[in-house]
Design a protein around this nucleic acid. Structure first.
Lengths: 296, 296
DNA sequence: TGCTATCCATGCGATATTGAATATCCACTA
DNA sequence: TAGTGGATATTCAATATCGCATGGATAGCA
């Protein structure tokens, strides 16, 4: 083993980068601190690109080179995790682990009921739910199936369009009672608006569609959940998916005819997984569950 | 090391799957056949999902489970390769390796000149060129930079739209001299048409745009290069990017006003790489080179 | 200043892993 | 039917790797 088996060393590298010290990394990996130290030394030696860490008494600080390769090692790690999931059960069985990603809102307010139903039908299934508004992880194998609000373009993905969730402006009843509701878009200036903080491509699109921008918001947050929380707490006017607003109750639509736009809903998974029965089952169940949500 | 360091074992697994036998895989990895055999046995044992291979005297045949995890291991492998590329030079230097993916046509007819120019300016650069019409590999780290014909949607990608290449129908002069050219779309039935073989989403889109379908083609191939070769050899009428047709010469446009559509051109790379100087440099150079190609 | 907690490095015996040699199996062929 | 080539398994001594114990160093704090 002289040429270059570095894979184990990469794994050790990741533990150190994530934990910041040899001892903590070693504990996480279940190996000893001296061994992990030797791994890092061996890796630096064999890569021949100088030090990956600067040793200090507080731990190991990654160098620029270490930061540069870190994302790649994370990709390896995600793929390794995917292997374990794949083998968590035979491919023709309706049990084992499936990892799903979805947005904050969908993951907390829409999926739980769908997943509970799924679990009742197939008790052997184990669901991992990863909530994030980033949509980068299907190819990198960080998750098996994704519920998305944008059309996936990658060829290797099996994607199905479920429909579209209309996004509208709402206010909680308690807010409406106290402050009334705007009759026209101009009245917005007199109201408390809940919106985004940082500019993201997605937000820019949304802002253009409804002709609102960051400066008009009274409460700015990048957490959709926080925004929804503020909305239901009666803080002010905010966006909400129409089916979700119906389900939550006590939310009254604002200028429903005038402001709003459609958010397409897609379910996607890697094509490789379509032969794995539980993946296919979860995929189909998510599709029908989301369709029911849209129709509600 | 009892819990689960399987990364090295995954690497061994991949070698066996790729080469079909322990002995060939071992030669590829630079380790001995008994060692590799023990790796596979250990992996099967620790994964606890039964055999990964059926041993025969002809070699090792992957089981269904092995086939299921293979893509994930390939992802790990691609990421490992990306690490080596990243470290092939310091991140602030204009040397080292950059891996680019592009379509067959662009890779063979457009990029070479652009890359040659690049190499003249920065002799320390090493370019790896991966040609394929699949566009799945940026997140999985199989390549660093991609030239694409579709808009990338993934958030973690840094993408720039260069413009659009118009796709038109052409015939080689020699064909036109012998058979004449169609005056209307209906005349196509009397001509030899070069087109695609299998139905792909991309082809379906293209077919819809120009109102042609598979049954009308006299020569069917899924290799764009073969189609272009047939076109320039005077086989019949076929599609070609307008700037490329101009550059090749001896190609005459057919119904230029009537048939054709625009192919957007994008350059994309992972956002992580934008701090690596040579990546940025190649990205920018590709952008300006492709823009020049479109303008030509 | 001295105590503690946390960190990395080193020496050393125990253990696990490796490679060379070899045995064995089987398909194929003259 | 015997020989050949290519394959996997086994044995065993050499060696690489590991964990434990320990040393040394620094920051925080009373």
């Amino acid at each position: 083993m002289d040429s270059s088996d570095l894979w184990t060393l990469y794994r050790s590298f990741l533990a150190v980068v994530q934990h910041g010290s040899l001892s903590r990394g070693a504990k996480d990996l279940g190996i000893s601190q001296p061994t992990l130290g030797r791994h890092i030394a061996a890796l630096e030696d064999r890569l021949g690109s100088g030090a990956l860490f600067t040793r200090s008494v507080r731990g190991l600080t990654p160098t620029e080179a270490a930061l540069a390769i870190r994302p790649h090692v994370e990709t390896m790690n995600a793929a390794a995790a995917a292997i374990r999931r794949t083998l968590s059960a035979p491919s023709d069985a309706l049990e084992g682990t499936v990892r799903i990603s979805a947005s904050d809102i969908v993951g907390t307010h829409v999926l739980p009921a769908i997943l509970a139903d799924l679990r009742n039908r197939h008790p052997g299934l184990v669901i991992e739910l990863s909530l994030s508004n980033d949509t980068e992880d299907l190819i990198g194998r960080a998750v098996d199936i994704a519920v998305r609000m944008v059309r996936p373009t990658q060829k290797a993905l099996l994607a199905r369009r479920i429909g579209a969730a209309r996004l509208g402006v709402y206010a909680h009843k308690s807010y409406a009672d106290r402050h009334g509701l705007p009759a026209t878009r101009r009245d917005f200036a007199q109201h408390a608006l809940i919106g985004f903080d940082r500019e993201t491509p997605y937000m820019r699109m949304m802002a253009a569609a409804v002709k609102l921008d960051r400066s008009m918001f009274t409460l700015r947050t990048d957490s959709d959940l926080a925004a929804l929380g503020a909305l239901t707490a009666g803080f002010g006017l905010g966006f909400c998916q129409v089916p979700l607003a119906r389900r939550l109750g006590n939310l009254v639509p604002v200028l429903a005819g005038e402001i709003g736009f459609d958010l397409p809903i897609w379910i996607a998974m890697h094509e490789d997984l379509k032969t794995v029965r539980r993946m296919r089952t979860v995929f189909d169940h998510l599709a029908s569950g989301m369709k029911a949500y849209l129709g509600a």
